[in-house]
Amino acid sequence: MRFHTRKWVKPQDLNPNHTLFGGQLLAWIDEELALYSIVQLENPRIVTKHMSEINFISSAKQGDIIEIGIDVVKFGNSSLTLKCEARNIMTRETIITIDSITMVSLGDNGKPKAHGKTEIEFVRNRIK
């Protein structure tokens, strides 16, 4: 799992139980998945099509630092299937896992568009 970003749990991220609100974590994850897909597929028009079961394993509290990890499962014709894990750096516990997320590349008409990608590319390798 490649961990790409970190988030600091602040007071506005908490639920009434004073732990990280699951909806906030999912928003962070969805944004990270979109950014990752935009870079991989070289298309700013990306949408989340599907998320499999979301497994909440543990939580986080104010002041904790969360890492979001993403791995590519497969490349489709117009899609990219990913998996995700968010973990608490402070406690070293996994907070959430999502085994399958489908992101779709869109054309200017808003319809799925073939992206032609078959493997992970690193930006540093695109620069000549």
Rank of each mutant, 00 (worst) to 15 (best):
N17Q: 11
T48V: 01
S79M: 03
T118I: 13
F75A: 05
M51V: 08
P44G: 08
N55R: 13
I29L: 12
S59W: 03
E31F: 04
I65Y: 07
G69R: 03
S78L: 04
S52V: 00
Q12E: 14
T19G: 04
N109W: 13
R6W: 09
S58F: 12
P44T: 05
W8L: 15
V72P: 07
M103W: 14
W28P: 02
R6I: 12
T118E: 14
T81P: 00
P11C: 08
E42K: 03
P16G: 10
P16W: 04
A114F: 07
Y36E: 00
W8E: 08
N109T: 13
N55W: 03
E119D: 11
G22Y: 03
K7T: 02
T91E: 08
L35W: 02
N109R: 11
E42G: 00
H18V: 06
E85A: 05
H4M: 14
L82M: 15
A34C: 13
C84H: 06
A86D: 00
K117N: 09
S79V: 04
L106S: 10
V47M: 06
Y36S: 02
N109E: 15
S37R: 01
S100E: 15
K113Q: 14
L80N: 07
I68P: 00
W28Y: 09
T91G: 09
D64N: 14
Y36C: 05
P11H: 09
W8Y: 15
S79L: 05
D71Y: 12
T97K: 11
I101R: 00
F3E: 09
E31N: 10
I68F: 04
H4N: 10
I96L: 15
K74P: 00
D30T: 04
I54H: 01
I95E: 01
E53M: 13
T102H: 03
I120P: 00
V47I: 15
E85N: 06
I29T: 03
L80Y: 03
R6F: 11
D30A: 13
